[in-house]
Computed example of a mutant assay.
Amino acid sequence: MRGSQLSEPASSGTPRPAGLRLDEVMQRVACGDKEAFTVLYDAVADTVFGIVLKVVRDRAQSEEVAQEVMIDLWRRASRYDPGKGSVHAWATMLAHRRAVDRVRSAEAAANRDHDHAVRDLQRPYDDVAERVETRLQSQQVRRCMKQLTELQRQAVTLAYYQGLTYREVAETLRTPLPTIKTRMRDGLIRLRDCMGVTT
């Protein structure tokens, strides 16, 4: 897809090992095969991004949501049932669902903000509890970030904390875009494992 920041076109990506079909690649992903995940990523990332962009309509948010979908594919690979449709169809369904959730979440947040502003409510206990929970989560994220390579850590920080696109990250770090994409993908996998996210 022209303009996608997520992955190289499937034709220039990693070839499927031994001519495996995509559903067979998915079976390997379900077993934790990271090389198979690379193949899956190259095969569906552009499609996922395109679907998300049509729903979310914001490129930066769409890149973030598309990465969440790719993590979902990694985490839920064991749930894929080839009898219910192709891998592309499943990825498309997950992408659309995630994108709609993001739009609804943004609308709900905007409505909540509006309601709070109108009512001008003070809820100190809830605020303190939320701050404590956020701080604990932040500490875990910081601990897991230390396990990444320097390039992975810089790329993730620029993309998710400063809101840069992959292309902007590549330019900032003076690193080829395909390398940034690969390091980001591997870094997200390592963060997921460190954070204890399970299927």
Rank of each mutant, 00 (worst) to 15 (best):
D127W: 14
D120N: 12
R167V: 00
E168A: 02
M1W: 07
S78P: 04
V52P: 03
P17G: 03
G187F: 05
E168Y: 02
P17T: 09
V39G: 00
G13A: 11
R21A: 02
D23C: 14
A30P: 06
T14W: 00
L151H: 10
A117H: 15
R119K: 15
Q27S: 06
L136C: 05
Q140L: 05
L136P: 05
L191E: 04
D120W: 06
G163W: 11
R97G: 01
R75S: 09
D115Y: 08
G83W: 08
R174N: 01
L94N: 04
R16S: 10
D58Y: 09
E130S: 13
D72F: 09
R185V: 03
D58C: 04
C194S: 10
M1A: 05
Y125I: 14
Q61C: 02
E35S: 05
P82M: 00
D127Y: 12
R2Q: 09
R183Y: 10
Y125F: 02
E24N: 03
T175V: 01
A30E: 01
H116D: 15
Y125A: 08
V44C: 01
R183W: 06
V128C: 01
V103D: 02
A159K: 08
D72W: 13
L22Q: 11
E107H: 15
V141L: 10
V132P: 01
E63M: 02
R153K: 11
L173A: 03
R28S: 07
D42I: 02
Q162V: 10
I71F: 14
G32T: 11
R112L: 13
R102S: 14
E64A: 13
Q139H: 12
R135D: 06
D46N: 13
D115N: 01
P15A: 03
R192N: 09
V103N: 07
F37H: 03
T182M: 07
R190Y: 03
V48I: 13
D33Q: 02
D101S: 11
R2D: 01
A66G: 05
A117W: 15
L158W: 01
K181H: 03
R131H: 14
E150V: 08
R190P: 04
T165H: 01
T92K: 11
D120V: 13
Y166P: 04
